[in-house]
Amino acid sequence: MCNVFASQDPATYACETRAIRLHGHCTSIRLEAGFWRILERIAAAEGTSPTRFLATLHDEVLARRGEIGNFASLLRVTCLHWLENQDRHAAEIAARAKRAA
């Protein structure tokens, strides 16, 4: 029943720690490799680097909510949201591009 999940490469769920700069401060984020790959895909779709995407997301959440309780968890759920809503995300990018033109 779970063969497709149980047979995945352990490298996909190995943790990776990456250093990023948020508001001029260096910090590190630890996520599973599979989440980093999805964040790289999201950033590419946005036309930016993963680091820039993370900084922008961080700033926008702070502006909306005033705080971020657990940024790593927010990033994991962002990946899930993007996987479930890729059409919506693509439409939003297209609308932004149209407004900029």
Results as ranks from 00 to 15, higher is better:
N85G: 05
H58W: 12
C79M: 05
A45F: 00
L75D: 02
H81D: 15
T51V: 04
A43T: 12
E84M: 12
E46K: 11
A44S: 14
T48V: 15
C79V: 03
T78E: 13
A90N: 14
L80W: 14
L75H: 04
A55P: 04
R88A: 11
W82L: 02
D59H: 09
T48S: 11
R76M: 10
H89F: 15
H81G: 10
A55C: 07
L54A: 01
T48C: 13
T48F: 01
A90H: 13
S73R: 12
T56A: 13
G66V: 04
G47R: 05
L57K: 04
I68E: 06
I68G: 00
L57S: 01
G66I: 06
F53H: 13
D87L: 07
L62R: 12
H81K: 10
E84D: 15
L75C: 05
A43S: 10
H58R: 04
H58T: 02
E46Q: 14
S49Q: 09
V77S: 11
A43Q: 02
R64L: 13
E60G: 04
F53K: 06
L62V: 11
F53D: 04
P50V: 15
E67Q: 12
A43D: 06
E60C: 05
T51E: 15
I68R: 02
A43N: 06
E84L: 14
G47P: 01
N70D: 15
G47F: 09
T48D: 09
C79N: 06
L74D: 05
T78C: 14
A72E: 14
H89E: 07
